[in-house]
Amino acid sequence: MVDLSTIKADEVLDCKGLSCPMPMLKTKKALQKLSSGQILEVLGTDPGSKNDIPKMCEKEGYEFLGMIDEPGYTRFFIRKK
């Protein structure tokens, strides 16, 4: 298991305030730009993302590392395989 609280992301994507499907599209695009092994951190506020991001990672073959709820937003961590 990865310790999410100390993780250092290579790229941070701000999706705060966005609603479906924008967080999903932006996350996919950002992941495409990363090289393999790098970690993307997504900041989001849409409740749907908590289902959609892990599901998308499974479908597209990215490693979903987990999420942390902060006051006012959620941090999602994804590693490109």
């Binding site: 999706c15 305030g17 966005l18 506020t45």
Partner: peptide, 9 residues
């Protein structure tokens, strides 16, 4: 790349 949204929790 539109950013700058916020949530009033």
């Amino acid at each position: 790349a539109s950013t700058g949204g916020v949530e009033i929790s």
